[in-house]
């Protein structure tokens, strides 16, 4: 099912939760909505689910305008962050709920519940109550309950955030696999960029109620068109710079006394906001990398990496880099890091 959001705005009192958001989710796509907390991503999901109605704008499921349809009329099944399993119902009853509401014959309900139990590896647990399940099992029941009604779209609101890190990784893979097998359109809200990058076919970035950028994970990571995206995705550090030279999508930028090569994004000003992808920096020179020299303020050993905080020569802004295969340099010493072009992004300031 293709989903279209057209010019949606939503206010809560004086708070502008969403400002003129438009986007399109393709049929069968795993679409992630990524943003910091309070950015409006959950509001957008709730509007898609029909729990909130937009003040302006339209929502289309396929060609059907569902803007003001109630949640029960949309066929958009939701999986909540806390899973919202009904404690007074067994696993079976939880999963069968949506089918019984649709007044399907008993045999059909049973058949479909069995299918969902099998799909999610929940066989044998059907008579348990939610409190008798582990976190991972509860999560699976919530997913089974949503999938069993064969929804037009599956809406997921940070469904993995209540799980421990190991289980989260495991279920991340399972969820993606099931979505692909069933070919169902899924919209996944998260503030975890790694999760979004790993799972999504495409993702949207939202900040302060505004849609910032939409793209594939690779586009978003490698070629962020908007400084917010550049800063939000990955480990980053920013500085102000002066444009020395411009041309062909690249620019030479002075950061203090250092001159480095950066990807230029609509750079038409003298001054630039420079975003460094901190973990792309190297400790040794490489072909095409720009050197950046500065004085170390703090350095920390972090296992596979070393975190180095430094102030570039002739600058006052502290930058952070993560370097592999390196001893922590002592504070006060001079250090040079080497930056690839895709590790430095310049935006007009």
């Amino acid at each position: 099912m293709r989903i279209r959001v057209e010019g949606v705005s939503k206010r809560f009192g004086k708070f502008h939760a969403l400002k003129n958001v438009s986007l399109e989710v393709r049929d069968g796509e795993f679409f992630a909505i990524l943003g910091p907390s309070g950015s409006g991503k959950t509001t957008l999901l709730r509007i898609l689910a029909g729990f909130e109605f937009p003040d302006e704008g339209r929502i289309y499921f396929g060609d059907e305008d569902v803007t003001f349809k109630g949640p029960e009329e949309r066929g958009a099944a939701m999986v909540f962050q806390n899973w919202a399993l009904w404690p007074h119902m067994t696993v079976y009853e939880n999963i069968a709920f949506g089918l019984k509401v649709r007044k399907l014959p008993k045999e059909v309900v049973d058949q479909k519940v069995r299918w969902a139990l099998k799909l999610l590896g929940l066989e044998g647990l059907e008579n348990r109550y939610p409190h008798q399940l582990s976190g991972g099992q509860q999560q699976r029941v919530a997913l089974a309950r949503a999938l069993v009604v064969e929804p037009k779209v599956l809406l997921l609101d940070e469904p993995l955030s209540n799980l421990d890190a190991r289980l989260r990784l495991k279920l991340r893979g399972e969820l993606k696999k099931i979505q692909r097998e069933l070919g169902i359109t899924a919209i996944y809200v998260t503030h975890d960029q790694e999760e979004a990058l790993a799972m999504a076919d495409r993702l949207a970035l939202i900040n302060k109620g505004e849609l910032v950028e939409v793209g594939t994970p690779e586009q978003i990571y490698r070629d962020p068109q908007h400084p917010f995206t550049a800063i939000f995705i990955g480990k980053t550090s920013t500085a102000k710079g002066r444009v020395v030279e411009r041309g062909d999508g690249l620019a030479r930028i002075a950061v203090g006394e250092n001159i480095i090569t950066a990807k230029a994004h609509g750079l038409n000003t003298e001054r630039a906001l420079v975003v460094f992808k901190s973990d792309l920096a190297k400790a040794r020179p490489r072909e095409g990398y720009s050197p950046l020299t500065g004085r170390v303020t703090v350095s920390m050993y972090m296992g596979s990496q070393v975190e180095v905080r430094m102030v570039p020569k002739g600058s006052e802004e502290e930058l952070v880099f993560y370097l592999a295969e390196q001893e922590p340099p002592p504070p006060g010493s001079e250090v040079t890091v080497y930056l690839p072009v895709e590790g430095v992004h310049a935006y007009p300031l």
Binding site: A49, G50, F51, G70, P71, E72, E73, R74, G75, A76, A77, M78, V79, F80, Q81, N82, A84, L85, W86, F97, G98, V101, R102, A142, R145, A146, V149, L155
Partner: peptide
């Protein structure tokens, strides 16, 4: 009782009456 317990029922197609009665 988390509100989501009702909302998830609605998203599965239950009307408010059913939500009240069953959840």
């Amino acid at each position: 009782t988390p509100k989501e317990m009702e909302e998830v029922a609605e998203s599965l197609g239950a009307t408010r009456g059913t939500v009240l009665r069953k959840v």
